[in-house]
Amino acid sequence: MPELEALTRDFAWPAVLLLAWTLGEAAHRYMGLPRISVYALVGFICADTQLGVLPPTSGEAVLLLANVAFGLILFEFAYRINLRWMRLNPWLLVMGLTEAALTFACVYVLALAFGQTTTHSLLLAALSMSTSPAAIVRVINETRASGQVTERTLHLAALNCVLAVFVFKVILGYVVYESSGSTLMAAYSSAVSLTASAGIGLLAGLAMPALLRLLQRTEQDASVVFALAVVLLVALTHAFKFSALIATLAFGLMARHRRVIIAPAQRNFGPLGSLLSLMLFVFIAASIDWRIALAGLGLGAALLLTRLLTRATVITAFSRISGVTWKKGALTAVAMTPLSAFVILLLEQTRQVGINLVDQLAPLAAAALMLEVLGPMLTQWALKTAGESPHNDEED
Rank of each mutant, 00 (worst) to 15 (best):
L253S: 05
G59A: 15
A301Q: 06
T316N: 08
S243I: 06
A186I: 13
I284L: 07
S132C: 08
L51Q: 08
S37N: 15
L122H: 04
R259I: 00
R267Q: 04
H120D: 15
A235D: 03
S132N: 03
R291I: 13
S37R: 15
V234A: 05
Q380L: 14
L124D: 10
L345W: 02
N160H: 03
A382C: 13
V42K: 06
G173W: 02
A126F: 02
S146R: 12
V149S: 02
L374M: 14
W381L: 15
L294G: 08
R9H: 13
T195M: 15
A317L: 12
V324T: 10
L305E: 10
M185E: 08
G375R: 12
L280I: 04
L184V: 15
S287C: 03
L346Y: 07
L253H: 06
A40Y: 08
T316Y: 08
I315Y: 07
T103H: 01
T332G: 04
K327Q: 01
T57W: 01
L17P: 01
A210P: 05
A301C: 14
L345P: 08
P390I: 06
A47C: 03
A15N: 09
A239H: 05
R9E: 15
S197G: 10
I200W: 06
A265Q: 14
S121T: 10
F269R: 07
E60I: 07
G201W: 06
V373I: 13
L123R: 01
W326Q: 10
P390W: 05
G52R: 13
I140M: 12
F44E: 02
E219W: 04
A135N: 04
T49C: 02
L361V: 11
T183W: 14
A204R: 00
T131W: 05
I261L: 02
T385Q: 03
F283P: 01
S274N: 05
W326E: 06
G96R: 03
F70C: 09
F240G: 03
A366R: 02
T332E: 07
Q352S: 04
R259L: 08
V373A: 09
R138T: 14
L159T: 00
I136C: 09
M31L: 15
F318H: 08
I246H: 00
S182M: 13
A285P: 12
A66W: 01
A61S: 14
A368Q: 10
A78T: 01
M185N: 01
L357N: 14
I321Y: 06
L54I: 05
W85V: 09
A196L: 12
F240M: 10
